[in-house]
Design a protein around this nucleic acid. Structure first.
Length: 167
DNA sequence: GCCAACGTTGGC
DNA sequence: GCCAACGTTGGC
């Protein structure tokens, strides 16, 4: 299986793209996910090298604000074992950790954030899961086409590159 | 701050 | 196994 792409949501007041950028070596665990569907993605599907769209939620202008990549695949989320953590889950044990996380590395901020309005009026991006009303999944799959389109619309990829070698 | 949508819990 | 109650998420 080749590289896959994901969108990860975070409230910037809790953990922002800038928090990731300024983490040691630009790397942080994506911890605290307490939803089984998202857990399954973290544990089973997300692989090293996968691309991540970093999305800021629960603010006045929610938006895709940057890119990250996965640098460690799923491993037990130890914050579930820590009674002092606000992500503590008394059901979790070292043998049965229940919750999983991955490590992600900062890649870049988008020159301009892509707001929901931006996404919604684009023919390709308008179908993204994140726009679906009531969708609360904090880790979501993104298609390769959506990934490429985000990069192009954000100005991170020269559209003329498609024609390289064509003449 | 409001509230709709969603996931989880727990009584039955 | 059903489903009402509850807590949380997250756009607006």
């Amino acid at each position: 299986m080749g590289r896959r792409y994901w969108l990860m949501k975070s409230e910037p007041g809790c953990f922002s793209l800038d928090d990731l950028r300024t983490s040691p070596q630009g790397i942080s665990a994506w911890d605290g996910v307490r939803n089984y569907q998202a857990r399954n993605l973290l544990r089973d599907d997300i692989q090293v090298g996968d691309g991540v769209l970093f999305y800021h939620s629960n603010i006045s202008r929610p938006a895709i604000v940057g890119l990250a990549r996965v640098v460690r695949s799923g491993y037990p989320d130890h914050t579930a074992l820590d009674p002092r953590s606000r992500h503590f889950d008394p059901r979790a044990t070292p043998d049965s950790p229940i919750w999983y996380m991955v490590d992600v590395a900062y890649v870049t901020a988008l020159p301009h954030p892509l707001t929901r309005e931006d996404l919604g009026r684009h023919p390709v991006l308008g179908t993204m899961d994140v726009l679906r009303r009531g969708n609360r999944l904090s880790v979501q799959p993104v298609t390769p086409e959506q990934w490429r389109t985000v990069l192009t619309v954000a100005g991170l990829m020269d559209p003329l590159e498609h024609f390289a070698g064509a003449g």
